[in-house]
Write a protein that binds this DNA or RNA. Structure first.
Length: 314
DNA sequence: CACTTGACCTGTCCGC
DNA sequence: TGCGGACAGGTCAAGT
């Protein structure tokens, strides 16, 4: 579930933790290289220094001194966890990001990481010359890392099609509305999740921003008023920025570069709040399915028009 | 072409 | 208790 705020949080952590470190070894079995040549990983990673970290949409870009970059997508369960030399174990790094905001009981997947990274979900280990390590963990194996020359990053198919960054100043409400209108006949939720419309929104922040704007996720884009879409733009930016400030959302797996959990989920207004009362009107939040995703809605605040009902499945 | 659904994975949770 | 199946969701491919 790493979405924009989670990946941004990881990026900021990695900036602090790994820039300037020299790679002494990298397990390369799950790192694809472009051009497709396993030898490139050893040749352009080992001995290289980390010179910069960028984020574009939900993709992390780790720039190396060799002119190559590691491109990382965490997909649903990916983690990039740094364990520094001298910490002894990961235990000290697995505390909540914000005091007592999020605390899972024994048995949570992250509890099993304590003191034993790498674990069964570890797919790639980047070792640094000072004895520290960066672990790419990915329980469900949807994530990937690829190594490619810097000049090929922009040629990547995903980078080619991905839409604008919502938190950049150029992303005005007018740009937002214009781009949504590329998908006039789909649901507003599907449009928000479409990475070619705008970058970085996933299931959590789609639901959260739609609740804030009082728009039902199944509403057809072209039927929504400009005024409501402007409101959605404002809500989306607010939700994304708030989530970054909270270190992202930890629903299950997500942790930042220090192995710490994000706390936004405890501030969520609809996401994962099914069976609980709406903060605005007290109506019980329901969970349904829109655009193939679990979707959380206050059916009183977020009204559906008669023609939109077909988009909703229990 | 526009849009929707299924596949990719694996751990967890629920019901029988 | 054990087991089968539904479910979680980012993205791409395949289907309607």
């Amino acid at each position: 579930m790493p979405e924009l705020p989670e990946v941004e949080t990881v990026k900021r952590g990695l900036e602090r933790l790994i820039i300037g470190r020299s790679i002494s070894d990298i397990t390369s079995d799950t790192v694809r290289s472009f051009p497709n040549d396993p030898g490139l990983v050893a040749e352009f990673c080992v001995g290289a220094k980390v010179v910069g970290i960028r984020r574009r949409a939900k993709v992390l870009l780790i720039a190396l001194s060799t002119g190559y970059s590691l491109m990382v997508h965490l997909k649903m369960t990916g983690q990039m966890v740094f364990v520094g030399k001298g910490t002894g174990s990961a235990a000290a790094q697995l505390e909540p990001a914000v005091d007592n905001e999020v605390r899972f009981g024994a048995g949570h997947p992250n509890e099993s990481l304590i003191g034993k990274l790498p674990d069964t979900s570890t797919r790639v280990i980047v070792s640094f010359s000072d004895g520290s390590h960066l672990y790419f963990n990915d329980q469900r194996k949807f994530g990937w890392i690829k190594l490619l020359p810097d000049e090929l990053v922009a040629q990547d198919p995903f980078m080619q099609k991905v839409g604008p960054e919502p938190l950049e100043a150029a992303f005005t409400d007018r740009v937002f509305i214009d781009r949504l209108m590329r998908r006039p006949n789909t649901s507003i939720k599907a449009a928000l999740l479409d990475q070619s419309v705008l970058a970085g929104v996933g299931n959590i922040y789609a639901d959260e921003s739609l609740w804030g704007a009082k728009i039902h996720p199944a509403r057809t884009v072209k039927t929504i008023s400009k005024r409501q879409l402007k409101k959605l733009h404002a809500e989306l930016l607010h939700v994304l920025q708030t989530a970054i400030d909270k270190g992202g959302s930890t629903d299950r797996n997500y942790v930042n570069a220090e192995g710490k959990k994000g706390s936004y989920i405890t501030f969520a207004r609809v996401f994962r709040r099914e069976t609980q009362p709406c903060y605005t009107c007290g109506t019980i939040i329901i969970k349904t399915r829109v655009a193939g995703r679990g979707t959380h809605v206050c059916e009183n605040c977020q009204r559906l028009t008669a023609t939109d009902h077909r988009r909703v499945r229990a």
